[in-house]
């Protein structure tokens, strides 16, 4: 059982995960932010490795990715920054990014490095289920890396069941079909969709993400899922002059 699976075993409600972009706001903030997040009470985190063409992302994460790349961030550098991660950080860590960067690094190499530095799982939004099953799943399993799939309000029940079968940590429920950084839609439709998901009795816990920005949206997500994921709102709040302080101030609202 990896740290992620352990977390969901022990905690069933109110789980908070934070996304941020590696190499942003300053190139060497990656580990500092991870440590500050654990200190401030995050349950786990997703570290984005930047990509030049992030089609699933809105302006904030496009911006942080671009700045990180301009500052010289690469996947290779991220693994170097995370070399001693497990000396100071205990909570689960996911890496999140686009498939082309993983392909160039080499899938086997990528999984090996993840395991070496103590990464527990990955979210690769543009890696399709078919390709994952055919070409990646074995390697992920071998290195104990959980692959996280996304589900949207338009995902069919049949496909959700399939995703549930292939998942071994949690399922990432998108609040709506949207790029990152939109506000959570807590309309009747969204509530109906969250309830439908909850009532499917899936084997994997659900985490709601995309559009969670404050305590109120976090709480409404928590009514339906094991917890929620905050990305753009957190990234927007990072102060390059006072990274640790800005992490702490942001987290106060939740913890």
């Amino acid at each position: 059982m990896n740290r992620l699976q352990q977390l969901f075993e022990n905690k069933k409600k109110d789980i908070l995960s934070i996304y941020y972009t590696a190499g942003y706001p300053n190139l060497n903030d990656t580990l500092t932010i991870a440590e500050a997040l654990e200190q401030a009470g995050a349950d786990f985190m997703e570290i984005g490795f930047p990509y030049s063409d992030p089609v699933a992302d809105g302006e904030v994460i496009q911006g942080s990715s671009k700045q990180a790349l301009d500052q010289g961030m690469t996947l290779e550098m991220l693994f170097a920054q995370l070399k001693d991660l497990r000396k100071t950080v205990n909570i689960p860590i996911l890496l999140m990014g686009y498939v082309n960067v993983v392909l160039q690094y080499g899938v086997e190499n990528f999984c090996k490095k993840c395991q070496e530095v103590g990464v527990d799982g990955c979210i690769i939004p543009d890696l399709p289920m078919y390709e994952y099953e055919e070409l990646y799943s074995e390697c992920f399993k071998k290195h104990g890396i959980s692959n996280i799939f996304l589900v949207t309000p338009q995902t069919s029940e049949e496909r959700i069941r399939k995703i549930d079968d292939l998942s071994n940590a949690f399922i990432y429920l998108l609040s709506s079909a949207a790029t990152t950084g939109k506000n959570l839609d807590v309309s009747a439709n969204a509530r109906a969709y969250f309830s439908r998901m909850r009532n499917m009795n899936l084997k994997n816990p659900l985490m709601i993400g995309f559009g969670i920005s404050d305590k109120q949206t976090f709480d409404s997500a928590n009514e339906y899922a094991a917890g929620a994921i905050i990305g753009s709102a957190f990234v927007k709040n990072l102060d390059p002059q006072d990274v640790v302080g800005s992490v702490g101030r942001f987290m106060k609202e939740f913890r």
Binding site: V55, A56, D126, P128, Y130, L150, T152, Q154, S156
Partner: peptide, 19 residues
């Protein structure tokens, strides 16, 4: 029938575009 031309092609899209 899988959407490939030899090694190339496929549908590398986020779940939001799948349907």
């Amino acid at each position: 029938d899988k959407g490939y031309y030899g090694d190339f092609g496929g549908a590398y899209i986020p779940e939001m575009l799948y349907p």
